[in-house]
Design a binder for these strands. Structure first.
Lengths: 181, 181
DNA sequence: CCCTCCATGTAAGTCGTTACATGATTGT
DNA sequence: ACAATCATGTAACGACTTACATGGAGGG
């Protein structure tokens, strides 16, 4: 249900085409709310039919620029402020951690070390993105910055947790952890 | 695709019925991998058809106790160690943060404060669960403990981030944050 | 006897992904 | 000319949710 709200939210910031929106989902929003090209176009059609967006202009190559309507703004506002957000109900990595007892401790250890590496890599990416971005002081930039900071903190937490988890695993095996550094 | 693997993973730890598994998803695993009753039963049938689990015993009230087969163990192991886990591609709360520029700053502020409250409440729940649980020293308990610790760290991070975010918002409004405490 | 919990299943519908299909425009 | 990018759409399938439907067993 939320891709529609994401589309409304992006269109609330200004008119855009399906192609523009699709690129936003594949870049800026890729770790926040991902969507396929296919889904973007079908949901735009549905929002149009529902009267929450409308075609503002048509350009070359069949380009359709959409804009949000008043009904769309009302729906967006309602969803944003009056509907309780749902926390994530699934985390594939965490599921695997929970099931790690079904493989050998050495294999579990490698798995955890791989998680640490992935988390550090993503953390570096976020830091680099933060540094290279010139954050203007408008509201748009502010909330983008808050979102990115969340990613930085999440990945830092994940890396720290992985290190701790490997240590706990080693402890449980009655073996001192002397592999790091 | 992963509910099947979750089922295999749980059955790798010992035989269980659909009802048993369903309860695990609604309790222990509710923040890790949630599933509805409906889905558990349909996927158990599919795993049975695929030869990855089999009916070990039938009990009263039509109860079917399933057990994992060798083919099932192979598939579980393959998924666990050879398939790269996918990071979460969607975070509804974060999507809303990103779109918070479309409402008034006061409303955005309330939204962030509400996130902090939710994060603190869940953190307390995890801490309480950790304290009341008697962690035996087998492998099963170890990985459950690692998972719970992740939840504790995530919720702590989330609460801290919320406080920071409110401060950033206040800063951007050129107004000193004197509302907290 | 009745309520709660145990226990399983099906049907309809939504959401999301992958693959297919097509074509215009711009830059080199 | 050719490649890359812009630009939109549909079809098939898989994952997941909600609702419907049924009934046995055990405890008070």
């Amino acid at each position: 249900m939320s891709l529609r709200h994401a589309l409304l939210g992006l269109l609330a910031r200004g008119p855009a085409s399906g192609y523009d929106l699709m690129r936003t989902f594949n870049t800026t929003l890729s770790h926040v709310w991902s969507a396929t090209q296919s889904q973007v176009y079908t949901d735009l059609t549905r929002l149009d039919t529902a009267g929450q967006i409308r075609i503002a202009a048509e350009g070359p190559r069949g380009r359709k620029t959409y804009e949000i309507t008043d009904a769309g703004r009302r729906e967006l506002r309602h969803w944003l402020l009056e509907v309780e957000p749902e926390g994530p109900r699934r985390n594939e990595t965490l599921l695997r951690v929970f099931l790690l007892g079904t493989v050998e401790p050495d294999e579990a250890r490698d798995f955890l070390l791989a998680r640490e590496a992935v988390a550090r890599r993503r953390h570096e990416e976020y830091v680099a993105l933060d540094e290279k971005t010139e954050w203007s002081d408008n509201a748009l930039a502010l909330y983008g910055r808050l979102t990115l900071e969340w990613g930085k903190r999440l990945t830092a937490m994940h890396a720290d947790w992985s290190v701790w988890a490997v240590a706990e695993l080693d402890k449980a095996r009655g073996k001192t952890s002397m592999k790091r550094d």
